[in-house]
Amino acid sequence: MTDKKSNAVMKQVLELGPVLLFLAGYIYLREETLTIGGRDYDGFIVITGLFVPLLIASNAALWKLTGKVSRIQIMTLVMVVVFGGLTVWLNDERFFKMKSTIVFGIFAALLGIGLARGQSWLEFVLDGAIPLTHAGWMALTKRLTLFLVGMSVANEIIWRSFSTDVYVAWDTFGQMAAMFAFFISQSGLMNRHWEEEGDDKTDA
């Protein structure tokens, strides 16, 4: 029992630790300009460069601890590596800032393709973790698709219209809070479509 609790705590540390360290590093370096290899980099780009290997290491440790990494975590890691790498290589913070726009957009597009085929790819992504009926998965997927489109638009507005400080707050806490609020708001739908003994309830 103690081992399970320890593993649960370690899992939380590995999932949230990189984000919190990114925030702390940004706060510490945001006013700094560092010269590396004869090239000047501002604090945001330096901490982005450090965040990429940190996230890779945390996902590797998470996989070793639990034996698996979710599809969403793998997708996020790939996008961070690609756009974080471009940010450092081209010395342009815009690439990292547009990362969430593209991630949310890709997920919305994929879910939309699944819906057009009469399928809920959200159920596949979540490995069927929630015991919902087919109608429930379809309704939740439709709502999440619209929500992700909104999140993609919101990210574009925020990084283009506000300061880097505002963007970092949005990227580290705002997006997480918005996702949490969305799923909490869907509790009524989930209750109506909770699958018990094969029953399928219709969406209201």
Rank of each mutant, 00 (worst) to 15 (best):
W63N: 12
L189M: 12
A116F: 06
W137C: 06
R94E: 00
E196L: 14
N59Y: 12
F107S: 02
T66W: 04
Q119G: 06
W159T: 05
L148D: 03
Y41G: 00
F44M: 04
G43N: 01
D42A: 01
T87P: 00
L110N: 02
A178Q: 14
T76W: 00
I184D: 00
G198S: 12
T101Q: 09
V153C: 08
I74Y: 08
D40W: 01
S58I: 05
L29C: 03
A109K: 12
H193P: 08
I72Q: 03
V19A: 08
D203C: 08
F183A: 02
W170Q: 10
T66H: 06
A24Q: 00
A24H: 00
I130T: 13
Y26T: 05
F104H: 10
G198R: 12
F147R: 03
I106H: 03
A60H: 06
V149M: 11
Y28K: 04
L65F: 13
K97E: 11
S187Q: 15
V103M: 11
E15V: 09
Q175K: 13
A139T: 11
I74W: 11
L146C: 01
S6L: 15
R117L: 10
Y28D: 04
H134C: 00
G174Y: 02
D203T: 12
G188V: 07
A129C: 01
K99D: 13
I130Q: 14
A154P: 03
T48V: 15
Q73T: 15
R30A: 02
V46G: 03
G49L: 06
L140P: 04
V103N: 03
M98H: 07
L65I: 13
F95V: 05
G114Q: 01
G37E: 02
R30M: 03
F104M: 13
M176E: 07
A177V: 13
D171C: 11
A116C: 03
T33R: 12
Y167I: 02
M176T: 14
I74N: 07
N59C: 10
L16H: 09
F124S: 12
V166H: 07
D203R: 12
M98D: 06
P53I: 08
L54A: 15
N7M: 05
